[in-house]
């Protein structure tokens, strides 16, 4: 009897999990397979604009039907052969790395200061970091256009103080992209850093001080290694989406700020070359698989640690 009830219980559980499971299979996993399939297809003028991979060839004389599967690697060869794509990938990684380092340099002291503040103040201080994340990403990028453009806030300030006499424009450069991306991703860095720093036992630092360790050395040998999980989680949370970023380089970057997200967008929307866009996406995904798996590992361990 108990066994039967148990089995019903388990069956009910299975049914419950099945709904989100099937949803994710259909709308998250299957799409990647389709993208992979189309990346092996050929672009053509049709609706949709690619050649079907699988075709039934009807031979009327012999009365037979043949299944034909056409796969071509030309899209991938094009990615490897054209400097544009390789440069875009390299440049995306460079911009993402700079963004990650900037977020870390700015975010670590913030997270550390909040974690060292009085317990009653930590919540509101953290809230102040997260709050901008709730306002529109697009609008936060837009705010920087007015600041960085020629005749914008920075330019006016510099001319008013007499530091420059000519119009000074930061907008439409890699610098603007670094600023904008650091700005948008900063909360993602502070959040996991704070989570690990807050759990840190302050008596460890006291012990180090008692034993004659200088504050800087104590920081480097005690705090920094212990906060490594937070550093890794935060860096991945910033780095991975940054590599494929589109909106920031499109709005703040110059025409020569090449990033792979922009290349994919242009292949898809401007050139209507869906197969090449798919190949770009698959190549980007292959590049990100390792960081994503490391992220999942860290994320899993952190949730386990919450127990």
């Amino acid at each position: 009897m108990i066994d039967l009830l148990r089995r019903i219980g388990l069956w009910g559980r299975g049914m419950v999990v099945a709904i989100p499971y099937l949803w994710l299979l259909l709308f998250f996993l299957v799409p990647f397979l389709i993208v992979f399939g189309i990346s092996l297809s050929e672009a053509m003028l049709a609706q949709p604009p690619y050649a079907p991979l699988i075709d039934w060839l009807v031979d009327e004389d012999a009365g037979t039907t043949k299944l034909q599967i056409l796969l071509n690697l030309s899209n991938y060869l094009r990615l490897g052969g054209d400097d544009l794509y390789i440069l875009a990938y390299l440049n995306s990684v460079k911009i993402a790395l700079v963004t990650t380092v900037c977020c870390l340099l700015l975010g670590y002291p913030m997270a550390y200061a909040i974690a060292r503040a009085e317990p009653s103040k930590r919540g509101p201080l953290m809230m102040l970091v997260i709050l901008p994340f709730w306002t529109s990403f697009l609008i936060r990028i837009y705010a920087w256009i007015g600041i960085l453009k020629a005749n914008g806030v920075v330019d006016n300030l510099l001319q008013w103080t007499g530091l420059t006499t000519e119009p000074f424009e930061l907008l439409y450069s890699d610098w603007a992209v670094y600023i904008g991306m650091t700005y948008c991703y900063l909360p993602f860095m502070v959040l996991p850093l704070y989570a690990t720093l807050e759990k840190l036992d302050p008596t460890l630092l006291e012990a180090a001080a008692d034993l004659g360790c200088r504050p800087w050395k104590a920081f480097l040998t005690v705090t920094l290694p212990l906060s490594l999980p937070g550093i890794i989680a935060g860096s991945l949370l910033v780095f991975i989406p940054s590599v494929g970023e589109f909106v920031t380089p499109e709005l703040l970057g110059g025409p020569d700020t090449l990033m792979i997200g922009r290349v994919l967008w242009n292949e898809f929307f401007a050139n209507r070359d869906w197969p090449v866009a798919s190949a770009v996406a698959i190549a980007l995904l292959l590049f990100l698989v390792v960081p994503i798996m490391v992220f999942q590992h860290v994320q899993g361990r952190q949730t386990e640690a919450g127990r």
């Binding site: 949370l237 494929g244 970023e245 589109f246």
Partner: peptide, 8 residues
């Protein structure tokens, strides 16, 4: 999906 680039 938390870290997947939006274009993909």
């Amino acid at each position: 999906p938390l870290v997947m680039p939006e274009v993909i």
